[in-house]
Design a protein around this nucleic acid. Structure first.
Lengths: 157, 157
DNA sequence: CTTATTTTGTTGACAGGGAAACAAAATGAC
DNA sequence: GTCATTTTGTTTCCCTGTCAACAAAATAAG
């Protein structure tokens, strides 16, 4: 296997492992809340004026799925919706006080994971960090361009 | 946001993007086959004597899910099961000729993706590759240890 | 050898998310 | 202005994967 493949597959495996391991801990600390719900809460708190469409694009899910999740979160009293006076179509979300409690618990768990994995990062140099970051960003931009291209392709078919 | 987070989240986003983009192409080239089915086919071809349990662990899915997928693949005539004379419990899988056709199409698509992303890797030096690989492997081992620990924790609860 | 425990694969009930069709509002073309 | 197109959010149907209970075989404990 060449190095390109090894890097990609290595990261795939690492990512899967991380999700699998953290999911249990998450659902232990946040009983009754699915990870997708928590992801929505996290995004809503960090991004002002988030709506169904933005959530869907950022979390790589369909608008249908996000629509259902946000409705559930409203019923649970974790988020609330609001609109702007000049637009009767778009519906935005913000956290309620109760939602912020969940957000904070999630943040704490996140810190816990960071603490758990601290040792891995200890001997990573600044140069290595920067190298990885620039690689990730470059690849990400490349895929953005491909996704855009794909979007055009699809319509022309 | 610190660099640790940026690396992790950067990779998460990159991974999601890649899955999202490649899934369409995959389902275009392999009409009628779900990505999970293709993943099973890929693993079975690359690992001798694979069974439900090994597939589940490697693909980060439950045995129940893999059991259903492999049954479907058998009905479709893509894989076949066999047992060993000294064990009446474990059931292994191998690809049929038809399954190998699918495997090869998948391989070709994989190469196509590699070609598409070639530019990203062009200016990555050997040192950068090695640095990323060692990071991934180190992190992966760390998580393996944590997963193992978690396994023990769970039983003691 | 006998009995308890673990491993392996399967099943059925259930929930989460995707695809597609849809209505309502916003935007664009003219 | 009017009409067509696009954007946004919702709903219904359906498929996939999880969970938990299970049976059968293998292994461990005694």
């Amino acid at each position: 296997m060449n190095k390109e493949d090894r890097v990609i597959m290595g990261f795939r495996d690492l990512y899967n492992k991380m999700v699998w391991l953290n999911k249990d801990k998450m659902e232990e600390g946040l009983k009754g809340y699915k990870s997708s719900e928590v992801h929505c809460i996290e995004y809503i708190e960090k991004n002002a004026d988030s709506n169904v469409t933005k959530l869907a694009e950022s979390l790589y899910m369909t608008r249908g799925a996000i629509s259902k999740i946000t409705q559930k979160l409203i019923h649970k009293g974790l988020i609330e919706s609001y609109q702007k006076s000049d637009n009767k179509k778009e519906i935005y979300f913000r956290l309620t006080e109760q939602g912020k409690v969940i957000f904070r618990i999630h943040e704490d768990l996140h810190k816990e994971f960071q603490e758990r994995d601290k040792a891995v990062f200890e001997h990573v140099t600044e140069e290595q960090f920067d190298s990885m970051l620039s690689f990730v960003e470059k690849y990400s931009r490349h895929l953005d361009a491909e996704i855009k291209k794909q979007g055009i392709d699809m319509k022309s078919e």
